[in-house]
């Protein structure tokens, strides 16, 4: 499942980051999007992009195009 497909309130575990751009991938890793981390979809911007997710006790907004490259396993 792609992280971008989740609905508000859903929780998921990150499985893989399929991001080619080195800088973006590094940035997301540094922000805590590592394998196994649990994320929750909190809010979606009015135009559907970017999406605000909760992880590691804080909120991070990420553009949909990058979220669609993050493989997750839905928990809830």
């Amino acid at each position: 499942m792609k992280l971008s497909k989740l609905k508000v309130g859903q929780e998921a575990k990150v499985i893989k980051l399929n991001i080619k751009e080195k800088e973006t991938r590094r940035h997301l890793l540094d922000m805590g999007l590592t394998r196994g981390v649990v994320v929750k979809i909190k809010k979606i911007a009015p135009m559907g992009d970017p999406i605000d997710i909760e992880l590691r006790g804080y909120e991070l907004c990420i553009g949909k195009s990058d979220l669609s490259k993050i493989e997750v396993e839905v928990i809830k």
Binding site: E21, T24, H27, L28, M31, K43, P50, D52, Y58, E59, L60, C61, I62, G63, S65, D66
Partner: peptide, 10 residues
């Protein structure tokens, strides 16, 4: 680019 990564403060 197409990337948007930013913290959302309370």
């Amino acid at each position: 680019s197409n990337t948007y990564i930013s913290e959302l403060p309370e």
